[in-house]
Amino acid sequence: MAEADIRAKRPLSPHLQIYKPIPTMVMSILHRVTGAAMYFGILLVAWWLVAAASGPAYYEFCHAILSSWPGMIVLFGFTWALMHHMLGGIRHLIWDTGHLFDKETSTKLAWATLIGSVGLTVLIWILAAAV
């Protein structure tokens, strides 16, 4: 009994929730979250393609769902996830070359990733509305 208790209550190393969020940490988490979200989001792309290949009627049905308000909100989120993951990925590719690692620069890059992803997302939707 006593032994089992000791095993059950032994201290664990601290995890995410005890740290104060900092930009590089938040972007790192968002990189994984956006990647995981798009893992399932790509289902929509595949569905859209299969719908188009299935004929006009099913394509119209698919488009009606994607262009509904909930559909558009999901697609807007998908666009942002894609842009954020792309910019975050470019950041990682730069780091792979050994550059831009120091504290101030990496924090600026983290902010640039966030601001850039929001900016590109808005730009894409303005273009989509204009086309």
């Binding site: 792309v45 188009a52 004929g55 006009p56 394509y59 119209e60 488009h63 994607l66 262009s67 666009t79 894609l82 792309m86 990925g89 470019i90 990682h92 590719l93 894409i124 273009l127 989509a128 086309v131």
Partner: peptide, 28 residues
Amino acid sequence: TAVANVPLTLFLVWLVVSLFGKSHQTIL
């Protein structure tokens, strides 16, 4: 694949933006 995905992502976004809401015939 990450490097490949950068231009491919821009291609996909361009394609979807120009096709979204178009007729089935346009997609074809």
